[in-house]
Amino acid sequence: MLTLDKIYQASHVLRSVIRKTDLIQAPKLCPDCNLFLKTENLQVTGSFKVRGAYYMMSQLTEEEKARGVIACSAGNHAQGVALAAAKNHMKALICLPDGAPISKVEATKSYGAEVCMVKGVYDDAYNKAVELQKEHNYTFVHPFDNENVIAGQGTIGLEILDQMADVDAVIVPIGGGGLISGVAFAIKQLNPNIKVYGVQASGAPSMYESIHNDKITCLDSVSTIADGIAVKEPGPHTFEYVKKYVDDIVTVTDDEISAAILALIEKQKLIAEGAGAASVAAAMFHKVPVEGKKVVCLVSGGNIDVTILSRVIKRGLLMSGRSCMLNIELLDKPGQLKDVSRIIADLGGNVISIHHERANEGSDINGCFLRITMETRDYAHIQEIRSALMEAGFHLVD
């Protein structure tokens, strides 16, 4: 059984292994509330996962340690297990889905673990790990549905209350539910008045569906940029803890997550992966009632692949009105491009690309199309430019 004593014990065991990550104020991310970030993206291995993995492995018998451990992961749990195994001089085999970011795969190898790549998503890697565990008699280190793992993650709840006893609400990303189970249990045991909200990606809402259906629900598929929370099915332990201790669960889209990643980079100088930014997205886009409250968003990890980051930034710019594409139908005569450029420049837009082509069938025979991509301040700025172009007689094609 999970107890508060066990979480305190985990905190003691982890003292020499992890960082007590900072709680930093982030007033620009959500002006409607007093927002703080629990920066587990700056944790050892770049994620909270090392807490649960290390504590669980510290509780193994000598015989279990001698057999070695096996785990499955989208990347962050893999690194936590690999580091814990290295510190305890144990063999570790990690099954990862073949879509895991390269940076996470290479980081796992760098800690000395053996890696087995599995075709599919997290749940496929889990099935392979179970198969290999039976075959070789390894000790299985579950990424979320194990009470020692949950106790290790619950140490974050203790830290938040130690750093800010008067917090009103805590927002936590959910994949399989190990993190929020530990955090919510610790917080509710110490102060049941504090609200704990969970956030899932809309492309992987397994816990959201399970809670709303009042039974564990397995999704047919998951698809999200937040690979760290792309889980088809929660565990029986985490389902029960979430049902009992979490106040509500919401979902955020990939576009909203991308905008949150971009906001964290620009306004807080922090790198977060998709799963880590999901909690911030929930606050930014008012998915939970945070107005006027003192709120902590748990930024669970920062292990984002740089190739994905560039795509996410582009998507985040579009989502936040910082980038815009306009299609303008023109008459093919001298001076048209000059007039369009002047209007955009006068209003402070910055053109970064232009594509010009003759009109298609069905258009004016003297017509042409101009496709412009530009940098803008926000949606109001985009609308200002659109209105000015239309007032000047230009026809915008949506």
Rank of each mutant, 00 (worst) to 15 (best):
M56Q: 12
I94K: 00
T373Y: 10
T45I: 03
S341G: 09
H355L: 14
I174G: 02
F140D: 00
P334K: 06
S16Q: 14
S58D: 15
A204L: 11
R51I: 13
Q200G: 09
F239R: 05
C33M: 12
V288I: 04
G99Q: 13
E106G: 01
A151F: 13
Q336R: 07
E64L: 08
L35K: 02
A345W: 11
D145R: 08
A151W: 03
T238C: 11
F185L: 12
A359E: 09
P27S: 01
G154H: 02
R342P: 04
L347N: 08
A71P: 02
V312H: 06
K188L: 11
L42S: 08
S110A: 15
I352A: 03
Q383G: 04
V121T: 13
L23A: 04
L264E: 07
S300V: 05
P334F: 07
A263P: 00
I365W: 09
L389R: 07
L309C: 01
N360P: 05
L158M: 04
A129Q: 06
L29Q: 04
I94W: 00
V130Y: 10
M117H: 00
N137G: 00
L317C: 06
E329P: 02
G302Y: 01
C72V: 00
G203C: 04
V306N: 03
Q383V: 11
P334E: 06
L331W: 07
P289N: 12
